[in-house]
Amino acid sequence: MSPKAGTRQGWGFVAPALLWTAAFFVAPFALMVWLSLSRLEGRTVVPGPGLDNYIRFFTEPSLLRGLVVSLEITAVVTVVSVALAYPLAAIIAFRVPRRWQRVVLVLAILPFWTSYVVRSYAWLLVLGQGGAVNAALMGLGITEAPLQLSATRFATVTGFVHFFVMLLTLTIYANLVQLSPNYARAAADLGAGRVATFVHVILPLTLPGVVTGAFLTFVLCMGDYITPQILGGNRELTLPQLIMMQLGRRGDFPMASAMAVILMAVVSLAYLACARWLRVERI
């Protein structure tokens, strides 16, 4: 086969997937950006280009607040999830006997495979007024009346942390088992204690995996609608909840599009911030 014919054949193979992505991902995205520059007057979309929606977003406290709430929740969730998942991944990788590791890992991420809706609902059962946690607390005589645990930010964060601890345990574990034990051995030979070995050798070597997982956590957490909607109550709304509200109440596609673009921009900024350590092909 001549090189030219080969290239043509190669394009033939790639074309269907490329066309699909162009038609149903790139084009909708372009349309969304264009819509975000238009305006809704009454029920009709007035074509722009103008920055009205963006100006309104950053000047209306109730809208801007959604971005702040989302960022706060996401920051807490990312930090707590990494802090909980790292020791778990390390224990599975270094303490659990090799032939059991696969089984333990599959069990550790089993609830990962429940759907988003069902997982959040399950937390509602656990944290609700008559739920398992309150029943246990009152049964043990720790509290007299049920605590308000659901319909709070605490509940949203718990639901998120639950999901992302599983995700991060998986990515950090994959990183840890790739490390040769020779690194730790060399550090010990050179006189490093357990803590020094961890801080100066193991942690830096696994940082790319941690950052990749943390970035994934950030992206998925910022964009999620279900968990705060089911667990968070209505006292404060996240950015995705506000986007859904624009769609539902007024059918304000331009405003919803502008907020989606802002969400994308925040995620892109996070990507740039940790691009140094990120290897997207590993995701």
Binding site: T21, F24, F25, L220, D224, M244, A260, L263
Partner: peptide, 20 residues
Amino acid sequence: VLIAPMTVSYLIIALGLLSL
């Protein structure tokens, strides 16, 4: 380009398609 949709929230993909 082929990998790109993986890095975008499902909500944004849904919103774009709905507009389309």
